[in-house]
Design a protein around this nucleic acid. Structure first.
Lengths: 197, 197, 197, 197
DNA sequence: CATGAATGAGACTTCATTCAT
DNA sequence: AATGAATGAAGTCTCATTCAT
């Protein structure tokens, strides 16, 4: 009974989060009502509130997910021993971002923007964002360190500073992609190559 | 009578926008109620609605302002004839951003984040954002073109692609500044220099 | 303008309290919904909430009123110089209670019972009840003191103790009147006379 | 099987009533949710509903219990042949009340107040209250009759009227005890003695 | 014109009760 | 018989907007 229940709970949980995410992608956190989520999830109000104590909690869950999605990539990339230049790391990241964005079910990166805005006056989300993005930036710092070891990048500079710049390109790319719609990993990498050279 | 009225109207208008901006900086667009704006502006409900037909219209006005603020800088920079490297342009922009952010009355860049999120499902704001950011990016493209003319940057690459990257650094810097709080124009420029070299 | 407004506000306030009291008399605090009060008052939800921040606050207002109603009587009674025996004071009080109870608009004493119950786990109402009933009991103590001065009642006994007993008869009378419906000031005074003699 | 089951059922029944009573003492009938009772009883929702068809039915059961608790005393008192003055009967009753109130598990007299309020618009509880309190008052009438037989009290007065007054003192005492907290059987009896003399 | 009290649709959330397992 | 997840009606409260004064 416990195993069935746990799986069941997880399934329901995901059912709700997915529904809520779909809503948030289309309408943003604030225009999304609990009634929307309830309808979209196919459950009842009581059921949804059995899994999330409040709209805030549900929003945090979606935000968490959206802010985490870029991160996963690095596990694979950094593990390998092959040389990883900053340019290559960035290009891989951008391609990963686009892959995520184009997954069926809607562009989750739109939710990331919502989360950034929300973090300005929602401590829970601000905390999540800080945590996730610190982690991500540390991974860029690791890439920077490798480049410094290779002699490709000036070893005197704090790798965290280099990571700041590398990291910055991700939201910058995302924003242009969503707002202006004319950037692709390819155009971006091309521009980047020209500048770095 | 008309002239006095026009000045009066402008003053009132600004009074409302300032009040609304102060609210949006602290609480975001959605937590800010018209009652908040009315109280903060010191006017009456009727008065506020005399200047803005709806909350949406008021929000658009604040968003517009927040999205424009970075732009102004370039008027001055590009006008001069002295050589302007991408690095120098970026550094100047970042410093300008921080200057704006630290102005008394609250950090307007927080409102820019709100505007990005809002643009995802608000056509008016999406339009404003596209317009303002296209303009800004064109200016970065102009800088890129100058660098290509100087031979500093590969002339074969579409300057718009280079502008995409340069532009990306601004929201990327902003986001880290607001979320993580540990980037400054100096650290950022240092990292950037290391990468570009 | 201020005077009109104040009167207006008071009128609206009373309109709401009256409506809420009518509901509470019939259905009690808890079965009474804000929708009931809103309908009964003839106002809108927003209007009602403009006068009372919450249902709790409205309930406290009604409770306050119900707990105060017995008190008024004493102003007149104690002012006069004529001798006032405990028996006479009680009889007058009971008659006053019945008069209040039979006023058109419903029996307010039913609300007093609600308030007693509510005071058990509502600090605001507990506070009001303590305040009002302390006051009332002090007035009975004053009556006791006069009787002691007259030599009618043993002067050695703390008049507050005597007041406790006198006071007790009021809720005891009220409860029987509402629950059993067979007590009147006359039967009660008759029984009281027999005991006191 | 039947006998075991009956005992089992009774035990379960009491388990539920005790849990519900504990909740009602602390929070009152209305703030107490079935979920509270279910949690406090340690049973499941289904189990509780196996014993009580509805919350109303459960509330009635608790109210019944609370309204009965004073009554028990008289069985013993009246049975004896020793003279029983009204004062002595009252004093014994008050002491019994306090004893009940101070029993571990919470002050049940708080629930009696709830029941009075509830009786105003709940026919089931009103019926119970009428029944229990009529019974109790009849016992006071019996005491009055004995006093009249002794010549202590005017025999011309309807003993029911005397009972009304005696009975009234119980809720009056209870209310002051719960609300003001400064009455004890001793202070009360002292005041009563002073008045009766 | 300005005011700000009033409107009322609609948001979030709770909770008594049921019923598939 | 027992469980407890699920139901969904109904409750409280907010807030953008209007309009009589």
């Amino acid at each position: 009974m416990p195993k069935v229940t746990v799986e069941h709970r997880t399934a329901r949980h995901d059912q709700i989060v997915s529904a809520a995410r779909r809503c948030a992608i289309e309408q943003g956190f604030h225009k999304t009502t609990m009634a929307d989520v309830i309808r979209e999830s196919g459950l009842s109000a009581g059921a949804v509130y059995g899994y999330f104590k409040s709209k805030d909690e549900l929003v945090s869950a979606i935000a968490d997910q959206a802010l985490s999605s870029v991160d996963e990539l690095f596990e694979g990339i950094l593990a390998s021993d092959q040389p990883l230049t900053p340019l290559a790391a960035l290009r891989a990241t951008l391609e990963h971002v686009v892959e995520i964005a184009e997954q069926p079910g809607g562009d989750v990166t739109r939710v990331a923007l919502q989360a950034w805005a929300e973090a300005m006056h929602n401590d829970a989300i601000a905390g999540i964002a800080r945590e996730k993005y610190s982690l991500l930036r540390h991974k860029f710092a690791e890439v920077a360190r490798r480049a410094q070891a290779d002699g490709t990048v000036d070893a005197d500079v704090d790798p965290e500073y280099i990571a700041q710049v590398m990291f910055a390109l991700i939201p910058g790319f995302l924003l242009q992609r969503l707002l202006l719609g004319d950037v692709t990993p390819k155009t971006f990498a091309t521009g980047l190559t020209a500048l770095l050279k």
